[in-house]
Write a protein that binds this DNA or RNA. Structure first.
Length: 229
DNA sequence: GCGACAG
DNA sequence: ATCTTGTCGC
């Protein structure tokens, strides 16, 4: 792990060479993993929820507890979340066919956001779905679900601003590893039959928060025995 | 130099 | 990320 911002940026530049931007990636993944991390001071809980790609039902969950080892710095989010996420992903009974991250992939100052970082380190197809703008410029997409516009940065199309629900604020989709933009957006729309955010993201968010609170209440009877490090 | 800035 | 009540709408 890097100890300074300069070191972290250098690592991103090195790992970027290992990126596989060759598509298309899974169009009908059987197992789709959602990942997220919740925090409380210096404590954290990383969660991975695997959904059936067809029914969107949760088929596996893993949560691990840990400590913050890297402060949040815009552009270096991966160094804060990747260690715990790798731990959690490694405890799955079987590898997922696609990983949906909370945040960005190629749409990043150095073209190496969380989705790229996690993808390269696991070798798994990965995409990023952000809730708010981070980098790039874009026209507002039409109000209907499915409409989208290019997210441009320094003259490059680095992602898409995708409307997942009619009349609702769009999400920011970008490529992570081994998946192209069309396939990434196709999957995001399949994962949003009812809400703005992918079911994977919603499930992982709930699990990470649940794990965070349960982990500090092990003294209480009846606390569900989750898989925690 | 100043402001913005995924989660 | 997290701090936080009510409120408008389907």
């Amino acid at each position: 792990m890097p100890r300074t911002v300069t070191e972290a940026k250098a690592i991103q530049d090195e790992l970027r060479a290992l990126l596989d931007l060759t598509g298309p990636g899974p169009r009908s993944p059987a197992r789709i993993a959602g990942v997220d991390v919740a925090y409380d001071r210096d404590r954290l809980a990383a969660a991975v929820t695997v959904l059936d790609g067809t029914t969107l039902e949760i088929v596996e969950e893993v949560a691990v507890a840990g400590r913050v080892t890297f402060d949040y710095v815009p552009g270096l989010l991966a160094f804060r979340e990747v260690p715990a996420l790798l731990d959690a992903l490694g405890r799955l009974s079987a590898a997922p066919d696609l990983v949906v991250c909370d945040g960005y992939g190629l749409a990043h100052p150095r073209r190496f956001g969380l989705a790229c970082h996690l993808g390269v380190l696991t070798g798994l197809p990965a995409i990023g779905v952000g809730k708010t703008a981070f980098v790039g410029t874009y026209p507002e997409p039409a109000p209907e679900r499915g409409s989208w516009t290019d997210l441009t940065l320094d003259g490059d199309v680095v992602g898409r601003v995708l409307r997942t629900r009619d009349g609702v604020k769009p999400v920011f989709v970008s490529t992570g590893h081994r998946v192209d933009l069309d396939t990434a957006c196709h999957n995001v729309l399949n994962l949003t039959p009812r809400y703005r955010l992918p079911e994977t993201t919603r499930a992982a968010d709930r699990l990470s928060r649940r794990a965070l609170t349960e982990n500090c209440r092990t003294d209480l009877v009846g606390s569900a025995p989750h898989k925690m490090g």
